[in-house]
Design a protein around this nucleic acid. Sequence first.
DNA 1: GCCAACGTTGGC
DNA 2: GCCAACGTTGGC
Length: 154
Amino acid sequence: MQYWLFKTEPNVFSIDDLKNSPKATCFWEGVRNYQARNLLRDSIQKEDLVFIYHSRIEPLGIVGIAKVTKSGYPDPFAFDKNHKYFDPKSKLESPTWYGVEVTFVEKFSRTITLKEMKETTGLDKMMLTQKGSRLSIQPVSEKEFKIIQKLAAK
DNA sequence: GCCAACGTTGGC
DNA sequence: GCCAACGTTGGC
């Protein structure tokens, strides 16, 4: 079992949108970065836990937890010519882009802000707190996951 | 296969 | 909204 962090812009898709989805479940679509694709396709497994991170809009930070309910499969929107995530490079027989299915687990009673995480001992090596870290699908260590869970329980 | 130009992400 | 830090593209 592994831990991850998925970034999303809450005005596009927030943790509340996930919660309000049918069965509180959705396909994490539209990732168009090869490093993130590799994680979605090869590394992220069913039952893994995922921090949902709100980017771009204040307050920046982790807002809750989701669970992976289906491991990597091809992003169908990459094949849809009329969809904004269409990519002619992605072929049915050799898909370029992948996603996973996630299900809402919990929303924290407060946002664990980026600022707070930067100031927390033990999170200084976390990918998220590094300068210029833009990867939208990031690995989180068990230690980091536990520290953040503890912050959320405060 | 280098690298300049361009596009995107995301904190501030 | 600005712009630094990345990623990608395409001419050579």
